[in-house]
Design a protein around this nucleic acid. Sequence first.
DNA 1: AGATTGAGTGTTACATGCAACAGGTAAAAT
DNA 2: ATTTTACCTGTTGCATGTAACACTCAATCT
Lengths: 216, 216
Amino acid sequence: MLKPVASARVVDVVRERLRGAILSGELAPGSRLSVPELARQLEVSRSPVREAVLLLVGEGLAVEHSRRGVEVVNLTLTDLLELYELRANLDSLAARLAAARMSSTDLAALRGVLDAQGAAAIGDWRGFRELDARFHQIIVQTSGNGRLARHAELLAREMRLAGPLHINESWHLKQSHEEHREIERALRQRDAPAAELAMHAHLTRVAHTVAAHQRR
Amino acid sequence: MLKPVASARVVDVVRERLRGAILSGELAPGSRLSVPELARQLEVSRSPVREAVLLLVGEGLAVEHSRRGVEVVNLTLTDLLELYELRANLDSLAARLAAARMSSTDLAALRGVLDAQGAAAIGDWRGFRELDARFHQIIVQTSGNGRLARHAELLAREMRLAGPLHINESWHLKQSHEEHREIERALRQRDAPAAELAMHAHLTRVAHTVAAHQRR
DNA sequence: AGATTGAGTGTTACATGCAACAGGTAAAAT
DNA sequence: ATTTTACCTGTTGCATGTAACACTCAATCT
């Protein structure tokens, strides 16, 4: 059996590329996304670039100023707290649902992520965040509610735009890691209310910490 | 002082027009959205139509089959229940937040909608649903969390695609109306937990009723 | 009959052309 | 000196051209 080849569409490649550039900071918040300019750099025509840029707007990674172009969103602290408030609810719902549906494979995957996170936790906050994203992703994917997963992941990606507002000090990462462990424990024991509560508490605590940290 | 004129872009007009056509059933679930065909009918070029169609996909009103076009989504009962599950959480969060932030103007607006709903509730389920949407909209708008409002409204619109799955019998509308009254009461008394609970119970009850009604 | 081929139709996906527009800058006018 | 005007540059928004592709259905083959 051969796999279908189905060459990727240019628009998909461009979208992926731009997303990566935005999330990695290569395209900083506030940068203008000029379609002709990007088309030149990526060496494709303007059509797929235009589409990709509009899709990014739909994902919340960029904002459109009618007739005056699109730019990478620049999140304020208020925006970030809004996002945490939403995610606290969506992710805790996901945790509750996931508690009843997690297969042993899912649980093993979660465990793997947490172990890797425990090992990386020393000073590599970049890797730590990557694993953090994976942890939350596994849970929302397992919730069984596809729309919940989609919206939660959109929010998670959007949050990554607030780079400088996050806290990378090790005491905070350590704390997050321990809360992740607690969530995993509740999931493993199929204790839906506990998982929901732990997830909600986790994200709320992070939000408060971020807010307090910024008010310095 | 003159207001700015800022003529609407074609893409916006087309998007609005297509959204209306989809939500009203003029473009039935499952219909193919052929860009050249729509462009002919709307008498504009294909570019703005293509963009508008893609935006509708982003809104969840249509699905894209790579290289094989876009069609209006056809929601299954499972989809609808997924949507209710999500909205139960988002809207109840909104209700909790709104309880603390509602101005007397907001409360009056809510009251107006409910009174109109009480009067229309006899047999006009179309008008009833319109007012139902307005009721929920006011609450999510008042929550103060813009993203919450955006996502909740996307979900609410998506739900309207499940036309035939809904229940239009008067006992059900009456029940919903009473639950709305209860939510409004909690909001008026600024009782956040009660508002949250009432909203959650309301949407969960509707979901259960719909599920039971379909299983006949 | 049932599978295969191939023409024909319509579409998507990408490329490109271009008018209208926004923003900047420098010269001209007050 | 400050406002006005004119010009220039680059972009957006819409229009259109077209190759590759997907689908249908009738003709052909096994």
